[in-house]
Every structure is written in C-alpha cells, then in structure tokens.
Amino acid sequence: MIVRSKAPLRLGLAGGGSDVSPYSDLYGGLILNATINLYTYCTIEETKDGLITINSYDAHCNKSYPLSSYLEINGEASLIKGVYNRVIINYGVKPRSFKITTFNDAPAGSGLGTSSSMVVCILKAFVEWLNLPLGDYEISRLAYEIERKDLKLSGGKQDQYAAAFGGFNYMEFLQNDLVIVNPLKIKRWIVDELEASMILYFTGVSRSSAAIIDQQKKRAASGNKVAIEAMHRIKQSAIDMKFALLKGDMVAFAKILGQAWEDKKKMADAITNPIIQEVFDIAMQVGAWGGKVSGAGGGGFIMLMVDPTRKKEVINTLNKLRGFVMPFQFTEGGAHGWKIYSTDKV
C-alpha cells in the first residue's frame, strides 16, 4: 500500500508574530492568514526489507535506518524523524518497515511556513496510513509540539493550523497554547480582486527565521516598550484587515499591510535588509501601494499590493531584479491524504 498527503503553504497577511510566546501568553495573539496553491508533499510506501528509508529532497537526506521505535535526532531529516518518534510514543504503534519521501514547492526559508506545513503533511500521511484518531485541531497541536517542543525549532503557532485547516482564517492565540481557528467565508469576487491586486515576489534570499524570532521573543520577555507597542499595533492590524477583506476594500487592505510592515521592522534588527528595501523602493516607484514580507522577515517572499491595471508593469520591473515573481492563487482546502492499494509501478 502507498499513502500520499499534501498540505498548503500560507501567506501571513496580518498579526504575524503575535502568535509567538511569550507575547501570545502575556497579551494574546491574533492572526489573519490564507493558504495558497503551493504545497508540501509526502509519500509513505510499505516495504518488507526491515528498514526505515527516508528520502527528503529538501533536507538533502536519502538514508536507510534499521527498524526501530526511535530515530535519533541528529540534524538529518529532523522533521520526519520527529513525527515518527511522536507517532510511535503517543499511539503505541509497532514499528514497521517503510519508505517515506518528502518535498515541497517552495525553497526553505521562504516565509511561507514550509517547515510547519511539512510537519502537518507528514503527520497527515501517518494518520491516513495508521488510521490515527486525529482531526484538524489535534494534528495542528501535535505538529506544533513536535516542531517547537520536541525539535526546539523557534517559531509561532499559526503555520501548523493554517496548513491543517486551509483557506482564509482568523486565528486567536490564548494562554496555555489554546488556539481558536475562525474560518472566513470570503466572497468569490473579493478573492479574485485580491489575487488581481497582489504580487508574490521571491527576493532570491532564503533565511533562517530562528535568529529573528529569538530576538523578537527576547524583546517581548524583557518588556521592550517600543517592540511591545509595535506588536500591539500588529495584532490590531489583523482585526482591521479582516474587516477590509470582508468588505473587499483593497486600498485599505494595502495601507494596513504597509503599516504592519513598518511596525514589524521594530521587532528585530534583521527583519529587513538592503535587498528587501531595494525591492520595496523600486516597486513603490512603479505603482505598488504597499506590502510586507511574509513570515519572520529577513528574506523569502514579499507580498505587494498594486493597482491591477499596473500589475504587469510592476511584475516586469521586479523580474529584472535578482528574484522572481511567483504566480499563485488562494486555496480553500487544508492538508489531506489518500491511499493507493495498487503497487504496480511503471
């Protein structure tokens, strides 16, 4: 039997960073995000060789391990091993031999939540394969615990829930890791207008979000007044943007996006850099209304809002820089998995 799964990547539209502890524990967080048609993928194939074979294209790992109830976390394909170890421990699953293959549509460090989406995707494959009793909330929570607590990877809570639920979501992050996901029903014409008005540009720079997030956490924990007040405004932007989106007001949406970016830059020193600033300066010169970096910052993808009649002009200009414009559409569905019982291969 073969099991496959896929989970979407997301754009962090507003409130990013308010889902990161200790801020979310102290003040509560609010996030507005949406998934797009870029995905992480996982395939699990049952084997009879007594081995666990890991083929992770993104982690550049292709290795086989003796059948075991625990795979050592040593920097090689840690996301896969972290999920496997938790599944064995939490659900008392007897180890069995298999091959797992993973890859995704975006580069690591893209700011689209690739790592968290991958953890959700791998978990979904195990859920499908082993018939585990996990819904969207349970998968999201377990993915968060694996990534943040077991593997000790810095980050927030929104990405796991975005990947599991899919679509446009307004999320609340409360004390004790409590999360409430509020799906938004956006009219089709508003989604079309948002797609017509938005450009997704890859800066050509992949970055590790850990150092940026760690500095953000440190400033929140130390009571840094400038950083905390900026984060309060960022959290409020999620509320304001939700109303702008529901009304289809793209100009207001763009203004909120731009102001949130100015506030975000106050959270950590490495959130922006000369490459990012050059993209913003050039885009604004040729007609962009505003924008922000998706994710922690420092590189990855930039979301830019433009007048749809000038969109092609902005795209042509940006494509002359070191990065590239990524075509995309918003999606409704979250992570899902399926079984294939025929093992015949070409």
Rank of each mutant, 00 (worst) to 15 (best):
Ala143Val: 06
Gly135Ala: 05
Tyr201Asn: 01
Lys157Phe: 12
Lys124Trp: 11
Gly167Ser: 02
Ile139Gly: 06
Glu138Tyr: 13
Met198Val: 14
Tyr161Asp: 05
Ala196Gln: 15
Lys152Trp: 06
Phe168Asp: 05
Lys187Ser: 12
Tyr144Lys: 02
Asn182His: 07
Val127Thr: 12
Glu145Asp: 09
Leu200His: 03
Asn131Pro: 07
Leu174Phe: 03
Leu200Trp: 02
Tyr161Leu: 10
Lys185Cys: 03
Asp150Gln: 06
Asn131Glu: 15
Asp159Gly: 10
Met198Asn: 12
Gln160His: 15
Lys157Asp: 02
Phe168Ala: 05
Gln158Val: 05
Phe202Leu: 00
Glu147Arg: 13
Arg148Asp: 01
Phe202Asp: 01
Lys152Glu: 10
Asn176Arg: 01
Leu174Arg: 07
Ala164Tyr: 09
Arg148Cys: 00
Ile190Gly: 09
Ile139Ser: 06
Tyr144Arg: 02
Ala143Leu: 07
Glu172Leu: 12
Glu147Pro: 08
Leu184Ser: 02
Tyr170Trp: 14
Pro133Cys: 13
Tyr170Cys: 09
Asn182Gly: 02
Glu195Ile: 12
Ala163Met: 10
Ser140Ile: 04
Lys187Tyr: 07
Ser140His: 03
Pro133Gly: 11
Met171Pro: 07
Asp192Gly: 09
Asp177Ser: 01
Asn169Cys: 02
Val181Lys: 04
Gly167Met: 06
Ala164Glu: 11
Trp189Gly: 03
Ser154Asn: 07
Leu132Arg: 13
Pro183Asp: 03
Val127Met: 11
Leu200Asp: 03
Met171Glu: 12
Tyr144Gln: 03
Asn131Cys: 06
Ala164Val: 08
Glu138Cys: 11
Trp129Glu: 15
Leu130His: 07
Leu184Cys: 00
Asn131Val: 07
Trp189Lys: 14
Pro133Ile: 12
Asp150Asn: 14
Tyr201Leu: 02
Phe173Asp: 00
Ser140Leu: 08
Phe173His: 00
Ala162Glu: 11
Leu174Thr: 00
Glu147Asp: 12
Phe168Gln: 06
Leu134Cys: 14
Gln158Thr: 01
Arg141Asn: 04
Ile139Arg: 06
Arg188Cys: 04
Asn176Cys: 01
Val179Ser: 00
Asn131Met: 07
